[in-house]
């Protein structure tokens, strides 16, 4: 891990003079890690550069680019964060112009922690660390093997713990609508937990993550109730790949399927009559 840290520090040091800032992670007081914008004039700040835990840096990029649309920036991103930046670009949330992606390849234990199928970057020209293969997702597989009644019982139990903190929505780099359906009284009532079944809060969110979720698992990590939210998203992502041949973050030029009309063969694969 420390080898990767040294290599990343060296890479950023080389890129810093060519850009206005590099978004990365920095260790703060008491060893708590947070996103930070490293500036060219202050290479000494790189001493507290950090790798883990990962943070939603695509959001940081959005915040900075909104205020400084023309800034030349670089961003340290893992596979999932790179997919996040690409998807946000497709939905006009960030710009890839003047942006350098510094790909940080995850190591085995990080990939296992995230149950990640793609713990590597594909678009970044500058990379640190060597890419490893994806790992299986035992949680999602176990869920998919359940019967219909077991699935219902599983979510009834899990959603019981939901305190409706909206944390999964807030931290999600792909949740950027100005008007959120989850704040609409018609679908999600204020002052009531999502439990009244079916949990509209969770199903609507899962629906809106279709062809958007980049499998970064930030929602699961921030959930105070420990609900394995990524199960929904990953199963739907699998369907989207089968039906519409779309994978988030894979091809920058490919438009998301929800913006387009049906392509040849899409309908036949959708399973509708």
């Amino acid at each position: 891990m420390s080898e990767r840290l040294t290599a990343l520090r060296e890479t950023i040091r080389q890129i810093l003079p060519q850009v206005d800032g590099v978004i990365g992670l920095k260790t703060g007081p008491a060893g708590i890690v947070a996103p930070y914008l490293f500036k060219p004039g202050h290479p000494e700040m790189l001493d507290s550069l950090a790798l883990w835990p990962k943070e939603p840096v695509p959001d940081t990029l959005k915040i900075i680019q909104k205020a400084y649309p023309n800034a030349r920036l670089a961003i340290v991103c893992r596979g999932c964060e790179e997919r996040g930046v690409v998807e946000m670009f497709k939905h006009a949330q960030v710009s890839l112009e003047n942006l350098t992606l510094i790909g940080l390849q995850c190591v085995q234990e990080e990939a296992l922690f995230c149950r990640c199928a793609k713990p590597y970057t594909v678009h970044a020209r500058v990379t640190v660390g060597s890419p490893i293969a994806g790992v299986p997702d035992p949680l999602t597989e176990a869920f998919a093997a359940k019967s219909q009644a077991e699935k219902l019982a599983f979510w009834k139990e899990q959603f019981q713990h939901c305190i409706k903190c909206y944390g999964c929505r807030n931290i999600c780099p792909q949740c950027f609508c100005n008007v959120c359906a989850l704040e609409d009284e018609k679908w999600v009532e204020t002052g009531r937990l999502p439990l009244p079944n079916p949990s509209l809060y969770h199903i609507i969110r899962a629906m809106h993550m279709t062809a958007k979720c980049v499998a970064c698992r930030e929602c699961e990590e921030t959930c105070p109730a420990g609900i394995p939210l990524a199960i929904h998203f990953r199963l739907v992502a699998r369907d989207v790949k089968e039906m519409f041949h779309y994978e988030t973050g894979a091809v920058i030029e490919q438009k998301p399927p929800q913006l387009l009309t049906l392509e040849e063969g899409d309908y036949e694969r959708s399973g509708l009559p």
């Binding site: 008491a30 708590i32 947070a34 996103p35 943070e55 944390g167 807030n170 931290i171 990590e221």
Partner: peptide, 16 residues
């Protein structure tokens, strides 16, 4: 606001 992931108390969680 961002939650603090490796903080011993909240462990990356926050309420509304």
């Amino acid at each position: 606001v961002l939650p603090a992931k490796n903080h011993p108390i909240s462990q990356g969680g926050l309420c509304i």
